[in-house]
Amino acid sequence: MNLVKKLVLGATALGMVATATAAVAFEPSKPVDFVIMAGKGGGADKMARLMQSIVEKEGLADKPLVPTNKSGGSGAEALTYMKGVNDPDHTIMVTLNSFFTTPLRQPGLKVDSMAFAPVGRMAEDTFLLWVHKDEGISTFQEFLAEAGKRGNKWVMGGTGKNSEDNIVTDHLNKAFGLDIKYIPYKGGGAVAKDLAGKQIQSSVNNPSEALGFYESGDVIPLVAFTNERLPLFPEVPTLNEIGIGEPFAYFMQRAVVGAPGMSDEAQAYYTELFTKVYASDDWQKYKKSKSLMGDFISGSDLEDYWATQIERHEKILKASGAIK
């Protein structure tokens, strides 16, 4: 299974090399500006620094990637910075779903997500519903009963307003007639800690954020918002398989993009670079241990994926009243 995967990856990588050499080969002539659209220490930041270290450890590039955090305004700062760079061939960025939602919510930024160069999607992060073990709840049905009973005294913590976590919470409230109170936090780590300390009653953390307290037995996952069960949590059902309400799955993209205006040659170079990062043992190990899903996609496939995501987020944000 793994071998097949590696062979496929190898073939993709070779294909990329072929296309890259067919065009006029691009090599960065100076260190590459590696923008992170989140603050230091968060999930996106950890992942970006892992990519950077893989590139360095395996000697994949002659010029280093230099990470810069631009965390202002849920990615607004990073997006406008990327739009305005004067050397798009040496500027790439690690993105999450604020890549779709922030331009939708802040039209004044005049940022078009589709104008960015689709370098490669490294993974899709997943969402699970977590509660503290002391709540005495072990199934999603029991959660619905208990949260329904406590009304707005049931508190969900999440990262940011109108963010991924907020979207999943809104869905739960709407689809199951709940009145869960959503409290925005600055980062997923703080949410995980407050759930472990019983300051809040539930969270929809990514596995990487909740894993520590899961392994210590403090928090338990009830349901996964994915299409199939996660290999890391084989006993946790998906919402779709429980079969109450409409089918619902939600992911967060972990993708690398090039600045708008990047040349095709440069884009091919970075796609090749990140194909190698994706195929590295370190990345595969990380992906598996943090329960990340999704294969590597790039080019027009990634653009198609973005188009569907933008459409979906526009619908979600309109439904919740975040945009008109």
């Binding site: 950890k46 620094r49 892992l50 270290s53 894993l211 520590g212 307290f213 392994e215 210590s216 403090d218 190990k285």
Partner: peptide
């Protein structure tokens, strides 16, 4: 995390 350690309760 990058060195393969899992900081946390365990």
């Amino acid at each position: 995390v990058i060195w393969g350690l899992e900081p946390g309760p365990r």
